[in-house]
Measured scan of single mutants.
Amino acid sequence: SHCAGCKEEIKHGQSLLALDKQWHVSCFKCQTCSVILTGEYISKDGVPYCESDYHAQF
């Protein structure tokens, strides 16, 4: 499978399933500020955001 963030193949190591896609753990980050999302996040149109950036933009 391929990472939804960087589009590279996910080989051995940690990956996560979010928004119905596979991601490298380090690629699942806020679209705006690039903080790596480990806990709470909000998505809009399949794109992840941290809570503060989501509320600031939408």
Results as ranks from 00 to 15, higher is better:
37 L>G: 03
8 E>D: 04
2 H>A: 01
42 I>E: 15
32 T>C: 14
15 S>P: 14
35 V>P: 00
25 V>F: 11
14 Q>L: 04
25 V>T: 14
44 K>P: 03
30 C>R: 01
26 S>Q: 15
43 S>A: 14
48 P>I: 05
22 Q>R: 08
16 L>S: 10
20 D>L: 05
6 C>E: 00
9 E>Y: 07
57 Q>E: 06
42 I>L: 13
26 S>M: 11
49 Y>A: 02
25 V>P: 15
47 V>M: 09
6 C>N: 01
6 C>F: 00
29 K>I: 03
22 Q>Y: 15
10 I>K: 01
8 E>V: 10
31 Q>V: 11
51 E>F: 06
17 L>D: 14
18 A>V: 11
14 Q>E: 13
6 C>L: 00
15 S>I: 15
14 Q>I: 02
35 V>E: 10
53 D>N: 04
42 I>D: 13
49 Y>W: 06
37 L>M: 06
47 V>T: 08
2 H>T: 14
55 H>V: 11
43 S>W: 08
39 G>Y: 03
19 L>R: 05
58 F>S: 06
36 I>L: 13
4 A>C: 11
57 Q>H: 15
51 E>C: 07
38 T>Y: 06
10 I>Q: 01
30 C>M: 00
26 S>R: 14
36 I>V: 13
26 S>N: 11
6 C>K: 02
40 E>I: 05
46 G>I: 02
34 S>F: 14
25 V>Q: 14
31 Q>G: 13
23 W>Y: 13
48 P>Y: 06
15 S>A: 14
3 C>G: 00
6 C>Q: 02
29 K>E: 02
26 S>E: 11
44 K>I: 08
6 C>H: 01
22 Q>W: 10
46 G>Y: 03
32 T>Q: 13
53 D>E: 06
38 T>W: 03
47 V>A: 13
6 C>R: 01
22 Q>G: 10
16 L>K: 13
33 C>T: 01
17 L>T: 08
26 S>T: 15
23 W>K: 03
43 S>E: 15
58 F>Q: 00
33 C>N: 00
50 C>N: 00
13 G>I: 05
47 V>K: 07
50 C>W: 00
33 C>Q: 01
38 T>F: 07
10 I>T: 10
34 S>M: 14
55 H>E: 13
45 D>E: 11
19 L>S: 08
48 P>K: 03
10 I>L: 14
20 D>P: 05
25 V>W: 12
28 F>V: 03
38 T>C: 07
26 S>H: 10
8 E>G: 12
29 K>W: 00
11 K>L: 14
11 K>E: 07
37 L>W: 00
43 S>F: 06
27 C>V: 00
49 Y>T: 04
42 I>A: 13
43 S>P: 10
14 Q>P: 09
5 G>E: 04
9 E>C: 08
35 V>L: 09
10 I>F: 08
48 P>N: 06
22 Q>M: 12
24 H>A: 00
6 C>Y: 00
18 A>R: 14
36 I>R: 14
5 G>L: 08
27 C>K: 02
35 V>H: 05
